[in-house]
Simulated assay, not measured.
Amino acid sequence: MKHKVWYITGASKGLGLSLVKKLLEQGYKVAATSRSISDLEKAAGKRSENFLPLAVDILNEQSVEQSIQDTLSHFGQLDVVVNNAGYGLAGALEELSDKEARANFDVNVFGTLNVIRHAMPHLRQQQAGHIFNIASIGGFAGGFPGFGIYCATKFAVHGLTESLAHEIEAFHVKATVVMPGYFRTNFLTSGSLSTPQQEIAAYKTVREVQDAHTNQYNGNQQGDPEKAAEVMIAVAEQDNPPIHLFLGPDAYQFAEAKMDVVKTDMEAVKTLATATSFS
C-alpha cells in the first residue's frame, strides 16, 4: 500500500496536516494542496521525492486540473484523493446573507466536486483508487443551532459521496464520506470559522452555541487528529472500505441519537404516511 500516492486538499492545518505528516512518517507519497504554498511548506516541509506541496485554488478548475497533472508528473500515479479543504460558518439562517451562504457552499461542496471531476478520469482509467470526502457529524445530524448552512454543505457532501460510491464501483474505485466529531484542531478558531457580518440580537440561543464552540469547546476537544489520520490510513488499506466513516465516540453518539429520532418519527406517522398508494 505504501507505494500509493495520496492527494490531499486543505493540508496546511487541521486534519489535513495531521494526515500528511502521518503518511510521510509511514513512507507514503503525498501531494498536498493549500491556498498558500508558504503556509503549507512551513507546516509540512519542502518538496521532496515523497512530498509535493502545491498552491491550489479549489474554486478554480484550471488550478485543480493543473495540480492533478503536477501530481501525476511528479509521482507517476494517483491513488487516494482526500477532499479535506473547507471551513465552518456559524450563524442563524435568517442572519446569514446569500453571499455568505453561497461562499460556504462554493468551498465545501463545489470545491470538492472540482477535485472529483478532475481526479476521476485517472482513477477510472487505472480501474483503482479511493476518494475520501471529509464531511462532519454535522452532515448527518443537523441539530446544531447556528450551524444550518455549514450542516447543509456537509449534508451535501454526504449525499454526493453516497451517489459517487455507486457511480464508480464499476471502475473498482471506492468512495468514503468521513464524518468526524469534535477533534482538537484549529477548526473553531477565527481562521477556520466564519461568523455573520450582520447578527440579529433576537437569536440568543445561536449566540450561546456560537460562544460555546469558540470559547469552551475550542482547545478542549477530546478527538486526537493524529489518531483520526491513522484510522483513515487503515480504512484506505481495506479491501472493502465503508462508504460511511464516523470518527470519534461523540460522532457515534450523535449518529445513533439521530437514527433513534428518525425511527421514532417514522413510526409515529407510519400508518398515515404509508396510506398514499392508489386504491
Rank of each mutant, 00 (worst) to 15 (best):
D265A: 05
N114V: 04
T185R: 05
E230M: 00
G146A: 14
A268P: 08
A212R: 08
Q126H: 03
L123W: 06
S48E: 06
K29M: 09
Y28D: 03
F171G: 03
L123V: 02
R102G: 11
A251L: 09
V109F: 13
V177Q: 05
G138W: 02
V5A: 10
T189H: 09
F183G: 04
P241N: 03
Q77N: 12
M179C: 13
F51P: 11
A119V: 14
P241K: 07
F183Y: 15
V206Y: 04
L54F: 07
K227F: 00
A255S: 15
G148F: 05
P121R: 07
E167S: 01
E230Y: 00
Q210C: 08
Q253S: 14
P241V: 03
P241F: 01
S190I: 13
M266D: 13
S12K: 02
K42H: 13
F254L: 09
V82T: 07
T33L: 09
P242K: 14
T276R: 12
H213Y: 08
F75V: 11
A32I: 05
Q77M: 06
V81N: 01
A228V: 01
S279E: 11
M179S: 12
M266L: 15
I200D: 13
Y182I: 06
G14F: 08
A119F: 14
L245E: 05
A141H: 13
F105I: 11
V177Y: 08
N60L: 02
A92M: 01
S163G: 13
A31P: 02
D224I: 02
K263T: 10
H74P: 11
Q125F: 01
V56G: 03
S190F: 08
E167F: 01
Q127F: 00
H158T: 14
I58T: 03
V56S: 03
Q66F: 00
I37R: 14
I200H: 14
E169S: 07
N133S: 02
K270V: 11
H118T: 05
K204C: 00
S194R: 15
V82P: 01
H74R: 07
G138R: 06
D98Y: 08
T112D: 05
T274L: 11
V80A: 02
K204V: 08
A202W: 00
G219Y: 03
K21E: 10
V262P: 05
N60V: 01
M232V: 00
L272P: 12
A236D: 04
K22A: 03
S192V: 07
F183K: 07
A156N: 11
Y87T: 04
E49L: 07
D250P: 08
E230Q: 08
A234T: 06
A234E: 14
I233P: 06
Q66C: 04
V261K: 14
S34K: 04
E49H: 06
K263C: 08
D39H: 10
M266W: 13
Q77H: 09
E65N: 10
K99W: 10
